[in-house]
Amino acid sequence: MALRTISIYRGDSGGGRFVDFQVDVEEGNVVLDVVLKVQAEQAPDLAVRWNCKAGRCGSCSAEINGHPRLMCMTRMSMFPADRPVYVAPLKTFPLVKDLVTDVSLNYQIAKTIPPFQPRPPDPDGLYRMSQEDVDRVQEFRRCIECFLCQNVCHVIRDHPENKARFYGPRWFVRLAELEMHPLDTADRRQLIREMAGVGFCNVTKCCTEVCPEHIKITDNAIIPLKERVVDLYFDPLRWLADRLKGKRPGAVGAQQ
């Protein structure tokens, strides 16, 4: 055990400040342990979200020494013992209190995404998909909705006015999962360009860097979506080929 300083941001939309707490840190402690210890022993009204404490639910996102991370998967031993560890709320979302922010924007965006539309099943009523068909989709479905990627993405982090026209990386992961689902028949490319604003992303990959599930957000979701959008909007050859094959761009199932 060792006494260490943790500096937690305390405040709400009206302002606040970092408050230092001295805590006995045990071997193996993660930042969340220490925050909860502060809550139990020193500040019962310290607001923080968490559930699983095992990196599976995506509740405990915060900025630790300025890095967006899950508190429950960040060990105290990562940081020098003689300096305070700073824990701050996410920047991109409005602050509710202390470490809790209002992430409702994400749930609103989720509602605008056209849901899964499967093709009819095989004659026996089942669906068959091979593992290599679903590998890509399963990577995306690992997402635990921690919204760290949404938080770090400079498009909305540094330019709040873009929140109305850019869905953000988590939602490109979701859109990619639907678009690449072997059973899905809907075509969401127009939405991806026009409402989700995939063009705002300049592929600088901060989302990939912070994703605790190691989803290759930029390489495997966003860039392939950009390419699919190019197929529809910026590739006359492709457009012509689709026309010749009798497919109308934008039509459901246009991308077989």
């Binding site: 849901p115 499967p118 089942l126 669906y127 068959r128 091979s130």
Partner: peptide
């Protein structure tokens, strides 16, 4: 369980795709 699949769940697959 099959219903979940119809709603978009993606389970690990057998060799014959089930």
């Amino acid at each position: 369980v099959l219903e979940l699949e119809r709603w978009g769940a993606v389970f690990d697959r057998t060799r014959d795709g089930r």
